[in-house]
Computed example of a mutant assay.
Amino acid sequence: MKKRLTIISALFLTFLFLNFYTLPYYVMKPGMAESLDGIIEVEGGYDEQGELMLTTVRMGEANIISYLMTKINKYYVLEPKEVIRMKNETDEEYQVRQLYYMEDSQENALQVAFKKAGKDINIKMNGIYVLSVRDDMPSSNVLRPGDRIIAIDEHTFDSSLEFTNYIQSKKVGDEIHVTFLRNNKKMTKKIAVDMIPEINKPGIGITLVEDKDVKTKPKVHFNSEKIGGPSAGLMFTLEIYNQLTEEDITKGYKIAGTGTISPDGTVGPIGGIEQKIVAADREGVELFFAPNEQGKKGSNYKMAKKTAKELKSNMKIIPIDSFDDALKYLSSLEKE
């Protein structure tokens, strides 16, 4: 009996070790493909015969078991923590950053969809949210994640692009006066402009999203608390537009996709495209929109097409560079 208890205890401890001993990696694996009509509701919006779906990946810290799974499952991928997390970023800061990205993608989707549908929308720019600060830049001694920059040299900006262009117009070594809010307290500090090595342009070394209030008529409600990141932007835009307009752009098809959305309707690349193709194929998706990245080598579209071929999927992969590209393709479809 004692020997049996020893064996059981050893097995239990081994199980705990395999499950709870974490490695300096994340494991990325296929997530889900979920219909957007349960996530987005436009008040008084039109119904659709088909489905528009977002796709996700599942991400978690690697333990020994999930590490071994990456050796036998092609679509379970190991990523070093420094690739997923910013330097010195805590779990809480990472989650906050993902939620800010999600909020930003929703606001951009509203802008693009309402403008295309010719509906009322009011946008008030409040400033720039600081998501992270590089510790090798002068701004690291001044700014913190969560600060809201409301002016530079007493200039306010209508978009993050205007903000970035203003700073990049400066020379390395120039000092700018940054006005920002932290815990509702207003401060103005000087920061020296430095060179950002990766882009070879002047900057202050922050990751940012726009802080804006977007009011629409009709109102739009999002139920996306469990989803983070910016990659659902394109599909959010298509779903909002479809509920705003009488003609059903789905034409009865099951349609999924991925890609960020900019206020001008540009669709940008995302991570985990292979895993999202797996998720979409499992759900029987017929059409999948993938960021084309202007046809560059190794684009999301090319990786998506390769993965669909490997899966022997009947799903059609469509290259997209803009929201208008997606609408043009859908308008050419025959009703199913």
Rank of each mutant, 00 (worst) to 15 (best):
D174L: 00
K217E: 15
K190N: 13
E310T: 07
D147T: 01
K296S: 13
E43N: 14
K201M: 08
S159N: 00
L234K: 02
P80L: 06
I204L: 04
K190L: 11
I270V: 11
Y75E: 10
K124N: 13
T245N: 12
M303I: 15
D321F: 11
K201Q: 10
I320T: 10
P145N: 05
I72M: 08
R144L: 14
D325V: 09
V172C: 09
V42K: 03
S332N: 12
A33L: 03
I123G: 03
F20I: 11
L238W: 05
P291M: 06
N73C: 09
I128S: 04
K226C: 10
D104P: 06
I167R: 00
V278A: 04
F236H: 06
S139Q: 02
V130G: 07
I277C: 07
K189R: 13
G295V: 04
Q98H: 09
I121Y: 07
P263C: 02
Q168Y: 06
I149T: 03
E334C: 12
P202R: 03
T216V: 01
N300F: 04
K29Q: 12
N126K: 08
T188L: 09
M187R: 13
Y100S: 10
A62L: 12
E274Y: 11
N292G: 09
I227G: 01
R134Q: 15
K116Q: 14
T266M: 11
E225V: 14
G228S: 01
S35T: 12
V77T: 13
G205P: 02
P202Y: 03
K186D: 10
M53S: 13
I199G: 11
I39W: 05
V285W: 06
S105I: 02
K119A: 11
I227Q: 00
L287Y: 11
Q275P: 00
T258C: 01
I270Q: 01
I65G: 08
N141D: 14
E286Y: 08
S132R: 10
R85G: 13
L11E: 01
E61T: 13
D213I: 12
G203N: 07
K306E: 14
E162W: 07
I191M: 04
T164H: 04
G60K: 15
A151K: 03
